[in-house]
């Protein structure tokens, strides 16, 4: 069981981390979510299908739920209100200087996640809809809008 977990962790931990970052735009929160997601995987590893693609989608679903819970939490809302966004991202200044990240940080998370899942992970609208528990049409409309928004933001930057 441990060998399978180690294999899955090594393969997918950065993907989960990126998705969590997409939600939170905070490296520390993304790391916590990634850790929580893999703890869940470790506990449920025997119940999951022996199918890597299925496991990856399962990990994204769990991370997505964990991220939403974190963003909804009282503590997180307080923290976001109190802290300056620039301070949160200051540790990874080089990365934050990337125009794409800057553009993404300026648009709502409801657009950022479909963007990441589609343009980075290569999932289609139907698959994203399952992960995010949305309708396929909602995902399609968000993907169209996010492309325009990103282009617009990057032009400004």
């Amino acid at each position: 069981m441990d060998d399978l977990f180690i294999e899955l962790f090594k393969k997918y931990h950065n993907d989960v981390y990126r998705l969590a970052y997409g939600y939170t735009l905070n490296f520390q929160d993304a790391e916590d979510i990634m850790q929580q997601t893999f703890i869940k995987l470790y506990k449920n590893i025997n119940k999951l299908k022996q199918d890597e693609e299925y496991t990856k989608k399962w990990l994204f679903k769990v991370a997505s739920n964990q991220s939403k819970d974190l963003l909804k939490s009282f503590w997180k809302k307080k923290k976001t209100n109190c802290e300056n966004f620039d301070v949160i991202i200051s540790n990874k200044q080089n990365l934050e200087k990337e125009d794409l990240i800057q553009a993404l940080s300026k648009i709502d998370k409801k657009y950022r996640i479909p963007f990441y899942l589609h343009y980075y992970e290569g999932y289609n609208a139907k698959e994203i809809a399952k992960i995010m528990k949305l309708s396929e049409s909602a995902v399609k409309s968000r993907l169209t809008r996010v492309k325009d928004k990103i282009k617009k933001e990057m032009e400004i930057i």
Partner: peptide, 30 residues
């Protein structure tokens, strides 16, 4: 846009040492 996204997001990753620490913590918790 695809190429740019891949390039940028590939940079978002945890260091090997930190990821090993997290993995060990999870295995130890069990």
């Amino acid at each position: 846009l695809n190429k740019k996204t891949k390039e940028v997001f590939n940079k978002i990753k945890i260091s090997d040492s930190r990821s090993n620490e997290i993995m060990t913590e999870i295995l130890d918790s069990k």
